[in-house]
Amino acid sequence: MIAVANDIDLLQGCIANDRKVQKLLYEQFYEFAMTVAMRYSRDEMDAADIMSHAFVKVFKSIKSYDSTKGSLHAWIKRIVVNEGLDHIKSRERFSENVELETVDEPPINNSVLEEMGAEEIMELIAKLPPATHAVFVLYAVEGYNHREIAEKLGISEGTSKWHLSEARKTLQKQLAHLR
């Protein structure tokens, strides 16, 4: 059982480069951060890569964390998401040639999704092309709008909409096969 340390103690220990305290912070945020990392990865090895890079960044830049601007959870999540997006970008460039004014909303059978397990849904999403995968997770799971996604990924809002439409169409087809 891992003892839950006070965030302030953890921060001070991590700023002092105390390896034991750094590990304590890592242990405390492992499940939460790994859940986020897996949304942007194809498999466990991808997730492990994202996690290791993200936490190295966390410890290197923890001095810059400002508690008045948000919780430590939110700060670490932002770092893990950014690392996940960098990981996806390394696999595929985000094309600027495709844009949409409005996002298509094909009907998806929710009852099929509810019958599926978490791992099965994860596999469906992981099969999406990397850029489309990233936009779908950012929009449907993380809750970002197209403007925010465009800023994060360095693409236009129209391209973000196009990727979301492509994700929905692909998921609809795959769920139709499962029915």
Binding site: E31, M34, T35, M38, E44, A48, A118, E119, I121
Partner: peptide, 10 residues
Amino acid sequence: KLRQLQVPDM
């Protein structure tokens, strides 16, 4: 569903 995802013990 994704929130219920079991994270691997790595």
